[in-house]
Every structure is written in C-alpha cells, then in structure tokens.
Deep mutational scan, measured.
Amino acid sequence: NQASVVANQLIPINTALTLVMMRAEVVTPMGIPAVDIPRLVSMQVNRAVPLGTTLMPDMVKGYA
C-alpha cells in the first residue's frame, strides 16, 4: 500500500504548505501520494484542512 499525504496540523485556507505540516500515512481512500511531498512545499491549500485529514489533489492549488 502506498502512503498518502496527511495533515500534521490544522492548515488554514490559503496557507502555503511546509514539510512540518505534512506526514506520510497509509490511508483509505488514497490521497496525494507521499512521494509528492517535496512538490507540495510552498503550494497553497484552497480550503482549511483539519489535523489528520488526507490531502486530495483538489485541495491544493496548482497540484492537479
């Protein structure tokens, strides 16, 4: 099973992602693959992402 990107903290809307905000976890359903974490750094979320939420492609501006 491939790990997905999960929020390590509450990420407010329009926040630029940093490594500290994300962790890799095997979850269902799968979200953004953990291998993409370096690519996500400095991209912004388009909604508030609660702690423990799996990041989906439509939550990150410019990802999809």
Rank of each mutant, 00 (worst) to 15 (best):
N1S: 15
N1C: 04
Q2C: 04
Q2E: 14
A3V: 07
A3W: 06
A3I: 07
A3G: 08
V5G: 02
V6R: 04
V6E: 02
V6A: 04
V6W: 02
N8W: 05
N8H: 09
Q9C: 04
Q9L: 10
Q9G: 09
Q9W: 05
Q9I: 13
Q9A: 07
L10R: 10
I11G: 00
I11L: 06
I11A: 01
I11Y: 01
P12N: 14
P12L: 09
N14P: 02
T15P: 01
T15K: 05
T15Q: 09
A16T: 07
A16I: 10
L17Y: 01
L17T: 00
L17H: 00
L17A: 00
T18D: 12
T18E: 09
L19D: 06
L19W: 06
L19G: 08
V20R: 07
V20Y: 10
M21E: 02
M21S: 10
M21W: 03
M21P: 00
M21V: 04
M21D: 07
M22F: 06
R23P: 01
R23V: 11
R23C: 03
A24N: 08
A24Q: 11
E25S: 09
E25M: 14
E25I: 06
E25P: 00
V26Y: 11
V26P: 08
V27I: 09
V27W: 03
T28C: 03
T28N: 06
T28I: 10
P29Y: 05
P29D: 08
P29F: 06
P29E: 08
M30S: 13
M30K: 14
M30Y: 13
G31A: 04
G31P: 00
G31D: 00
I32D: 01
I32K: 01
I32R: 00
I32N: 01
P33R: 11
P33Q: 15
A34N: 05
A34R: 03
A34D: 09
V35I: 13
V35C: 03
V35L: 10
V35G: 15
D36G: 05
D36A: 13
I37D: 01
I37Y: 03
I37N: 01
P38M: 08
P38Y: 10
P38W: 06
R39P: 03
R39L: 14
R39I: 09
R39M: 14
L40Y: 02
L40F: 02
L40H: 01
V41S: 04
V41D: 04
V41Y: 06
S42F: 09
S42Q: 06
S42V: 03
M43N: 04
M43V: 04
Q44Y: 15
Q44D: 14
Q44T: 13
Q44A: 07
V45D: 00
V45R: 00
N46C: 03
R47V: 07
R47T: 14
R47G: 08
A48W: 14
A48N: 05
A48Y: 10
V49T: 05
V49E: 02
V49Q: 02
P50T: 08
P50H: 07
P50E: 09
P50L: 10
L51A: 14
L51H: 12
G52K: 05
G52N: 07
T53K: 09
T54H: 03
T54I: 15
T54N: 02
T54P: 10
L55I: 12
M56Y: 14
M56C: 03
M56T: 13
M56E: 07
P57F: 07
D58N: 13
D58S: 14
D58E: 11
D58C: 04
M59R: 03
M59T: 07
M59E: 03
V60L: 11
V60T: 02
V60C: 02
K61F: 13
K61H: 15
K61S: 15
G62I: 04
G62W: 05
G62D: 14
A64W: 05
A64R: 03
A64K: 03
A64D: 13
A64T: 14
A64L: 12
